[in-house]
Amino acid sequence: MVAVTAPVRVLFVGGLGRSGSTLLELILAQHPDVCAVGEVVHLWERALGGDERCGCGERFTVCGFWQQVGEHAFGGWHAVDRDEVLALKAEVDRTRHIPQLARGDLPAEQLAAVRRYADLYTRIYRAATEITGAEVVVDSSKHASTAFALRWAPDLDLRVVHLVRDSRAVAYSWAKQVRRPEVVDGEAYMPTFSPFTVSSLWTAQNAAFHLLAQRAPVVRLRYEDFTADPRGTVARVRRFAGLTDTPDALRVLDEPPVPLVRAHSIAGNPLRFSAGPLKVRPDNAWRENLPTRSRAVVSAATLPLRLRYGYLGGGRTNSTEAS
């Protein structure tokens, strides 16, 4: 008899960056039933290519967790042809491919390419669960196109958290220069984007997750609701991920704070290198510091979805509203 292997349960955190995904991921990672791996979409370039630091503080090639993952998934990272993966990624994982990936079926050749690409992630996720004993892997890659590709993987139980933040707050954050501490050999900074560019990206990414909700389990979470009720929000996200309610999963939010478990995360906000404690609180600096002209551009360009998400008139939506 051939052993039947259960699908790997993956909680994919999607949306535009600077919306709180790293904070949510770190909180979820504090319980052993969750294994947080960061933004796997960047592993091929930043970890395999740049040997950047893992969230634990070690370089990728020195991190014991990631070396075990490589052995379990591929027989060692040396067996992965990075150039071939990047070529496959360019063929499959791009925003412009979303309309095709959203279809009910794909031509055989395209389906084969998408599944080859998704299988790389499936192997990594499965290895992570086997090594840690976790029930769920959290991937905060955020890119909608990556989530669309993963939905075609036959061995994944994919569940998506569509994380949304007020577009004006996101624009303010993307205008700031932020150093990337994971880069060891030299100094590098996260990219900065103009208000118009952020508005376009914010609209495109969020709209894409509404489309994905027609094909996969997706819930929407507002950053503002998360910071207002972190305990309730994390509990609801855990239930959506199929995890049992347990007070231990929320201990990181208690006072006094408990020691922080460092996640083995690839890429993401510098917060992932924090030794703790984690403090979940609203960040409204944009209200005073976002220039008037920038605010006007972003407000106008993102009006339809801001209205839908309750960002006009101070309205609130449920934390786990269907997208």
Rank of each mutant, 00 (worst) to 15 (best):
G104K: 11
V34N: 04
V40E: 15
P259G: 13
A87I: 06
C35T: 15
L86H: 07
F65H: 08
R287V: 07
S19E: 13
E58R: 13
A79Q: 08
R236L: 08
A153K: 09
V261W: 05
A301Y: 00
A188G: 06
T292Q: 10
A188D: 13
E58W: 00
R179K: 13
V85Y: 12
A29H: 15
H31M: 04
F226D: 04
P32M: 07
D119G: 13
L86G: 09
P282H: 01
V234K: 04
L307I: 09
Y309G: 03
R220E: 12
Q177P: 03
R272G: 08
R103S: 12
D225I: 03
N318Y: 01
A171V: 05
R116G: 05
L278S: 04
T233F: 01
A207I: 04
V2N: 08
D93G: 11
R238W: 03
E321W: 11
V80H: 02
V198G: 00
R168G: 03
V4R: 10
Q177F: 03
C35E: 14
W286M: 05
L43I: 14
V160S: 09
R46Q: 13
R251A: 15
G76V: 12
R236W: 00
V62I: 06
A208L: 07
R222I: 07
C54P: 15
R262T: 08
L211M: 15
H72A: 15
A73T: 05
L150A: 15
C54Q: 06
T95M: 11
A204V: 13
W202A: 02
A102H: 08
E224H: 00
D229M: 12
A147E: 11
A263G: 10
W174F: 09
I98H: 03
